[in-house]
Write a protein that binds this DNA or RNA. Structure first.
Lengths: 124, 124
DNA sequence: GCTCACTTACGACATTTGTAGTATTTTCAG
DNA sequence: CTGAAAATACTACAAATGTCGTAAGTGAGC
């Protein structure tokens, strides 16, 4: 199940709190996202189509609830990225993370050691 | 600089060996990618447009060379993913990686320890 | 019962992405 | 030189994505 960028925004809101109305989601979107109400509706409809979200009526109001689990979506996004940009293997991704400057020297060294082990074992 | 999926395929070939001709790239694409020659040309043109690739003539043949560094592209893709799916922070990404079953128990435990340190420091 | 504000249903439209086709120019083997 | 094979340039086009607009329905007060 692949989500587009805008779909992630909505899903993030939904995962955080659900069920939710379209209006409720609108209110909890990040400040830099200023979509028209109908835009949100359209996106939700697409998500329902994809089977990532369930829509049901409570009286007359539409409520939305995620069907797709956040972890599942994350795993899938990560896999896509890894295939696309890291030769399809998690090793290179880890490697990259290690060599990147977001970790302190200590953390990097420790991680690097782990990676050595991992590469000897040849992961999936 | 954002690359699309098919652009990644091409770039991966280019990073591996360059400069390269369109034909040369065609030959080194993964087996499951069977694009027409013109498709590759179109994609390369788009990459040149974006400034990710440089095209120049060696005599009459067009040669292509990456301008965008692989690491830069990776960093950017990772950042996009993190923003989209991991609350914009690398911590949750690491966390996810650790809890995922791609690492052996040992590796996971070691990584987890590292992460504890990291979260105390509050990363970017 | 009528109106106003909000919700819903549906359609719309520009851009981006994936994937080629065609027509023209070059090139290379005979 | 000649004709076939390869390269270029340009155009095309459907599907996916981002982003609404409008018209019709509905419920809550006056």
């Amino acid at each position: 199940m692949k989500l587009t960028n805008s779909e992630w925004q909505l899903m993030n809101c939904l995962w955080e709190r659900h069920p939710a109305t379209a209006r409720g989601i609108a209110e909890r979107l990040p400040d830099d996202v200023t979509w028209a109400y109908t835009t949100i509706r359209t996106l939700l409809a697409r998500l329902v189509d994809k089977g990532a979200v369930r829509e049901y009526k409570e009286g007359k109001t539409s409520l939305y609830e995620p069907l797709l689990a956040r972890d599942t979506a994350r795993r899938s996004a990560l896999k896509t990225l890894v295939n696309q940009a890291f030769d399809g293997a998690y090793g290179p991704l880890m490697h990259f993370l290690v060599n990147d400057r977001r970790l302190s020297r200590q953390q990097r060294e420790a991680l690097a050691r782990i990676l050595e082990n991992q590469s000897e074992k040849k992961g999936e």
